[in-house]
Amino acid sequence: MALLSRSVRLCLILANLSALARTAAPPADEPLGEYEVKAAFIYNFARYVEWPQKSFRSPADPIAICVLGGDPMGHLLDEAVSGKTVEKHSLAVRRIAEIREAGTCQIVFFAASHKMPREALANLRMSGVLTVGETEGFARRGGIIGFRVEEGHHIRFDVNIEAARDANLRISSQLLSLATIVKR
């Protein structure tokens, strides 16, 4: 009997709590996949970064977004950029297995599964490639833009300005104002 009344009491507490939640919570949005959002970020990076002329062989060349390492984005990135243009450049997604193939890319996304970002980053310095990564401390270790997932729910990004300068890239102040600036 005591047990019954206890669970009734618990039920009331829970009902109250959830009623509280109902009033407190605005209609919740669908949670989105981390990589859906990251793909949209990468598209925006292409919009807010200016490459040196020599990065493209011809002005009609697409901005090549290369994914290095096991691809966590799958079709999400292709879908995000398909049909889009930035300053007359179309956008193309390529998957590459080795850093050697990165020379003709404008953006290289280092998937978390890639094994040696630091080594690869050293090779890419000053080559006009925007390096984007998602491993811990990516920008601090010489990458240009590093994603972070804050409190496990919101995506933030670090920018290493020195690394961007070394690579001859201009990042718009609009993007920088939203970034966390890090140093080596």
Partner: peptide, 24 residues
């Protein structure tokens, strides 16, 4: 949101989106 084109959102909006935290 199922068929939402996220690329139409600003960077600021993207930063406000809550993502499911599937760890690597």
């Amino acid at each position: 949101s199922g068929s939402q084109d996220l690329t139409s959102l600003s960077v600021e909006d993207l930063m406000n989106i809550e993502v499911t935290s599937v760890s690597r």
